[in-house]
């Protein structure tokens, strides 16, 4: 019996490993400590708010965030008035009472405004390939937050490339070379740099800081319910451990006369 159980466990483990082994053959990612990792993880609100600023001032020029609404920012620790203010600064297209196309200030219930009216327009304005929507980008990439952080911080300028790299990956002066991007030639020019944004909380806006912050923000955007999930999970598992203990005692009692 025991041997069978062990084999079974090994079998399951091997199956799991098999599934994981599929990818992860790209360049080594820069593994970071994230505030939201692990069963007790929560989002670092200050970092995520700074990250929102990075998104708003930099990324939003090209990348949509279709699944997030302005009202969701309240989760990030902004007040309702602040959210209303942020939304009101943005005009969104709508249809007026007479059926004509109008522009009106955004409301908290509106989704984040798209930089381009549709995907074709986005592709046309970006050399043929639409910049991906960032709503679930952290879940949509192998490596998640580490990959995005590494991507944002692993650009190598053309003049710093070795001749071998230039030759192997067929890089020209107009290409953007990124160490972790599959194939290394990425359409997106380096989006972040030192002092690309001016943080309102006085944090020094280094490239590293901006990348970390925007990844924290995008992780939150990908999974706003993470904290509820962790909290519920801890409770459920503690409860079930107690129940399992009691069930085991009951089972032992019931079987006591048969062993």
């Amino acid at each position: 019996m025991r041997r069978i159980l062990v084999s079974g466990a090994l079998a399951l483990a091997a199956l799991g490993l098999g599934a994981v082994a599929v990818a992860a053959e790209h360049t080594e990612l820069k593994h970071q400590h994230w505030h939201f990792k692990g069963p007790f993880g929560t989002y670092d609100r200050a970092a995520a708010q700074r990250g929102f600023q990075v998104y708003k001032d930099v990324c939003a020029a090209c990348h949509s965030l279709n699944l997030v609404a302005y009202r969701n920012l309240i989760d990030l620790g902004l007040t309702e008035a602040q959210v209303k203010g942020i939304a009101a600064e943005i005009t969104v297209p709508d249809i007026g009472d007479d059926g004509s196309a109008i522009e009106r200030p955004a409301r908290p219930s509106d989704r984040f405004k798209k930089p381009f009216p549709n995907e074709l327009a986005a592709a046309a304005a970006n050399g043929g390939k639409a910049p991906p929507d960032l709503s679930v980008i952290v879940k949509a990439r192998e490596g998640g937050p580490d990959y995005l952080y590494s991507l944002l911080t692993s650009y190598v300028p053309f003049d710093k490339l070795t001749p071998e790299q230039i030759k192997e990956f067929n890089v020209t002066k107009d290409d953007n070379f990124n160490l972790v991007f599959p194939g290394h030639r990425i359409a997106m020019p380096p989006p972040l740099a030192d002092d690309k944004v001016q943080y309102t909380d006085g944090t020094k806006a280094t490239l590293d800081q901006e990348a970390r912050d925007v990844v924290e923000f995008l992780a939150w955007a990908s999974e706003p319910h993470l904290e509820a999930r962790n909290r519920t999970g801890i409770r459920v598992i503690l409860f079930m451990l107690a129940l399992a203990g009691l069930m085991y005692a009951v089972k032992r009692q019931v079987w006591a006369d048969k062993h």
Binding site: P39, R229, N230, T232, G233, I234, V236, I237, M240, L241, L243, A244, M247, Y248, V250, K251, V254, W255
Partner: peptide
């Protein structure tokens, strides 16, 4: 009772993945 115990143990493993 034995099945009940087994089910709970299985659900604990399942919960680790779910949560």
């Amino acid at each position: 009772m034995k099945d009940g115990f087994g089910v709970i143990v299985f659900l604990i493993v399942y919960s680790v993945f779910v949560f």
